[in-house]
């Protein structure tokens, strides 16, 4: 289903994005999540015991995936090339732009599920807890790179603007619009 869902990155962008799988994304994201946990511990309180669960995030239009254990200041994110048989408590699969839309609250998780834009398996309770914690976190792109002040605002404006353009270009769903 997700393989043919509109909103996936075009072939050229997929090819251009492929080398990203060789970058040290795992350590960088681990650092970003831990830094965020220091700044906003309440987000991880909301996750409770589910912070120790493992979440396999598979962008359906990229050839790499992420395994995350969002355990606050002990959080770990691994980036893996190719499709993995890595065991995880929860697996979420969707086009990259949909996953990013869920992360920043632009898109509604239930609506994406109804529209079959995402597929999930594993522990539904852990996934629901993570979704609700992310919803309340009000994450911005600056949170991921640790930028604050004027630089943070610049990062947010640039990335959010870029994502908006990318969604329009790829036909990715926007909130309220049928897919």
């Amino acid at each position: 289903m997700a393989e043919h869902f509109r909103g996936e990155l075009p072939r050229l962008l997929r090819i251009l994005a492929a080398p990203a799988g060789f970058l040290p994304l795992g350590p960088a994201l681990t650092l970003a999540v831990r830094r965020f946990a220091h700044r906003k511990p309440a987000v991880f309180d909301r996750l409770g015991e589910y912070g120790k669960c493992s979440f396999l995030i598979e962008p359906s239009d990229l050839d790499f995936s992420f395994l995350m254990v969002p355990d606050g200041v002990r959080a770990e994110v691994k980036c893996m090339r190719g499709r993995t048989s890595q065991p995880a408590d929860v697996t979420v699969r969707a086009p990259l732009l949909v996953l990013l839309g869920l992360l920043d609250g632009t898109l509604d998780g239930d609506a994406m599920f109804f529209n079959r834009a995402i597929s999930v398996s594993g522990r539904t309770d852990a996934l629901v807890a993570l979704r609700n914690a992310i919803e309340d976190a009000e994450l911005t792109p600056a949170d991921f790179v640790g930028a604050t002040g004027g630089l943070g605002k610049l990062v947010d404006r640039s990335v959010i603007g870029g994502l908006g353009l990318a969604r329009r270009f790829t036909g990715s769903p926007i909130s309220g619009e049928p897919s």
Partner: peptide, 10 residues
């Protein structure tokens, strides 16, 4: 149980 995207739009 819905997200901010739903709340804002509706």
């Amino acid at each position: 149980q819905r997200g901010k995207g739903y709340v804002t739009e509706v």
